[in-house]
Structure formats: C-alpha cells, structure tokens
Amino acid sequence: MSDASDEERAERRLYSIGLILSVVLTVASFATVTTGILPRGWAIPALIVLALTQIVVHLRVFLHIDLTRQKREDLQLLLFTVLLLAIMGFGTLWIMANLAERM
C-alpha cells in the first residue's frame, strides 16, 4: 500500500475543502440576515440557495454521493426520495395555503 498515504492526503483535503465551504456558506447565511445587505424580498431566496448549496456540498463530501457508477444506486434512491418529498411537501404547503386564503 505505497499509495495509501497519497490517497489519505487526498481524502483529508476533500474533507477540509468541504469544511471550509460549509463554514463560508454558513457565515454567508448568517450575514445575509444580520447585516441586512439584501433588499427585504431577497433575503429568503438567498437563504434557500445558500442552504441548498451547502446540502449539496455535504452530500458530496461527507456522504460520498457522486456521479460515478458505483454510487448510482445511492444517488437514484436519494433523488427518488426527494421527488416523493417534493410532491408531498409542496402539496401540503399548496393545499394549506389555499385553505388559509379561503378562510
């Protein structure tokens, strides 16, 4: 296992990059709210984009989801679950918002 240390170093680097990206994205999220630099309507879309980006970083770095064939099953399972969740989640929000409007 002569290349083990190289491989280990590469993995450590990947995790460290993931940590740095997560910290940057988290600080950006908090800064969006505490500094109020964005116009009022923009803060929440910005938070959603930052959170989704951070989730993708976590999935890639910490949960080892990627586009290689070896991980295809994990990725498909994840995407299918997200699809089901989107139908149920958005359905819930849609119906309940509609009801609230009619109340």
């Binding site: 491989e7 290689t68 070896q70």
Partner: peptide, 8 residues
C-alpha cells in the same frame, strides 16, 4: 490514487 478507492 485511484478515483474508485477515493469514492468508496
């Protein structure tokens, strides 16, 4: 370093 091992 093989990509495969890294992704495991």
């Amino acid at each position: 370093m093989s990509a495969k091992a890294q992704n495991a």
